[in-house]
Each structure stands twice: as structure tokens, then as C-alpha cells.
Design a protein around this nucleic acid. Structure first.
Ligand SMILES: [Mn+2]
Ligand SMILES: [Mn+2]
Ligand SMILES: [Zn+2]
Ligand SMILES: [Zn+2]
Lengths: 152, 152
DNA sequence: GAGTTTTTTGCAACAGTATTGCATTATAAA
DNA sequence: TTTATAATGCAATACTGTTGCAAAAAACTC
């Protein structure tokens, strides 16, 4: 559905350029959060600098949000419908797979509630990162084990 | 106490070089987590590459641990006594000040407990990042407000 | 649809971050 | 003190992220 991305761009008052449509569709179709390199690899023709600016534009508009995953490389994922310009509502945990490196949104796991004042510090935000082995990698591990067992 | 760092190096079977003593003392004396640039700025003579390798060595030995703070720049802080080679015990939250950029360990705030299996994913670790305004920045803000009020 | 205005894009240049190989130097062991 | 071992600093390289500017594309006006 190419019209999906066009609708989002229109709703946010953004001009419907090829780059924006392509990048936004990639986010819509992607099951996991994407780094700049991921997007760059998907569209070899698009300039890196344009991608940086596109991501910033989308983030400001509440179309995508940053997913902090403990790596030093920011990842981005499509926002929930309730997000808008300068007011993100994506207050959920992110899962980072140590096996394949993929990061996914855990919309059903809210970030923990923390007292506003803690040890004399004003806490404005709490971010939860989960890491371990993702569904897909688990399946691969299991089938590898069963192969090993068969060979023995 | 310069002997403090020497003792730690000896206990971990590391040769007592000038770089290691200096960097380790900096960590011991520092109230907050340090980035590579912070350390580089403290000792202009020491080569960046040596610092990268020193940090990696210390981390592997359980002398320092990485403090994930949501920025894209890893920070490091001295470990709790219980940490050892390849077995870190620093399971606490980190606070990142949005005003001054400093990151501190919150040893008294444990990372949240999360079920090992969540949504079909195996969770091995949970990391909590808190962000807001630190003690020191709060004091500055308050005094700035009182000055403004006096001028009115 | 053609022409005009405005915005977006891609390139150049640059600063910062991170890694590896290797010769030199410092430390530890003999 | 001499020898063996390990750490350091430099060169080279790759990757990440930012800004200014001219060309191209999109939006707007008629
Ligand atoms: Mn998310
Ligand atoms: Mn810590
Ligand atoms: Zn995985
Ligand atoms: Zn602060």
C-alpha cells in the first residue's frame, strides 16, 4: 500500500517526495527498528545526508521515534498513532537481540514508573532496554541443537 | 591515594603502567561516569588508541563497567567490589542529566526484574536509564530563578 | 499546463569516533 | 643487568554525523 505513506505525509504537512515515501514505507513494512545504515543499505541510491534529515523530520513530526537499545547506534521505529509533533507517546521498552542485533518495540511493556524526585535528582524520563535472544534466533538455535543431536 | 590504583592493578594481574595508574585514579576520584573524550581531555598526552585499549582491559577485568545512558557515547564508571573478570554485578540504573550531560551510577536503584520469557523472547538482561536534572544543575536553576525574582 | 516560489536533495568539505597492524618503548621476569 | 614479554603511540583506514551551498524537485499561482 503505497497510499499509506502518502496519507501520513499529507496529515503531517510534509511534501510528498520520493525519498520520504520510500523511507516511510520501509518503516511501515519493517518488523523491527532501523538504523541509518539499514535504511542506506535498502536504498543504495539515496544520499546519507538526506536520510539523516529525513529521519529528523519524521521524528519531529511524531511519525517515528528513537529506540534506545544499548548499542551506540540509534535505531528508529514507526510511532503509535497517538504521537504528534513534539509530543511522543512511545513510552515502551525495546528489546535488543544479542544474537542477530535486531531491535524491536515492545509496545505492551511500558517503561517503569519512577518517583519524580530520586536521591535529590529530578527524574523526567525512564527508559527500559531488554536484551537477550529474539524469537527468530531461538528457532534457529533449537533447530541447530536438534541437528547436532541427530549427528551424534 | 595513588596506592589504591596500584593495588587494584596488582589484584587483577595487570602490569602497573603510567597510563593505567592515571586512568584508574581518574575513575576512583570521579563522581560520575566518564566517556573516552572526558579521559582524553584530562590527560592530553595520552593517545586515544591506548585509552580505548585500557578501557577494554579494565572492563574485561571487572574494574569498570559500561554505563548506558541513551546518548550514543558509551560512558564508564568504577565497578562495585563484587565484580570480577567476565562477571559484572553492576545491575543498577544510571541517571543522565539532560542539562549538563553528566551520567552517574544509581547503585541503590536496581534494574527492574523482568520475566525470563516475554512475548516469546528470552530476556537475559534489563537495563534502566533515568534522565532529567541532576542535583548540581537543580541548585543552579534555583539560584538563577531567585536572581530573576530579585531583579523584578 | 506554464511559470514562479519554496522546499528538498545530493555533493563537497569537515569533525569526530573507532579499529587494526606494527615499530618503539616500558614493564616484568630471569 | 640482561632478556623476554607486554603496553604504548603512530600510521592508516573505515565509519558516523554535521554544515553550507548549488541543483533539482515539489508546491503554489495564474
Ligand atoms: Mn518503540
Ligand atoms: Mn554504574
Ligand atoms: Zn535475533
Ligand atoms: Zn546536571
Amino acid at each position: 500500500m503505497a497510499s499509506n505513506s502518502i496519507k501520513i505525509l499529507e496529515e503531517n504537512g510534509l511534501s510528498k517526495t520520493e525519498v520520504r515515501k520510500k523511507v516511510l514505507n520501509l518503516f511501515i513494512d519493517s518488523a523491527c527498528a532501523l538504523s541509518l545504515s539499514d535504511i542506506e543499505a535498502a536504498f543504495s541510491k539515496i544520499d546519507r545526508i538526506t536520510l539523516y534529515r529525513t529521519l529528523k523530520t519524521f521524528e519531529n513530526k511524531g511519525i517515528i521515534h528513537k529506540a534506545v537499545d544499548g548499542t551506540n547506534h540509534p535505531k528508529y521505529a514507526i510511532c503509535e498513532a497517538s504521537c504528534s509533533e513534539h509530543k511522543h507517546e512511545d513510552d515502551h521498552a525495546h528489546f535488543h537481540c544479542l544474537s542477530c542485533g535486531k531491535t524491536v518495540c515492545f509496545e505492551h511493556v511500558p517503561n517503569p514508573a519512577i518517583p519524580e524526585l530520586l536521591n535529590g535528582y529530578v527524574v523526567e524520563e525512564a527508559t527500559l532496554i531488554l536484551s537477550g535472544t529474539c524469537k527468530e534466533c531461538l528457532v534457529q538455535k533449537k533447530s541447530r541443537i536438534s541437528i547436532t543431536e541427530t549427528l551424534e
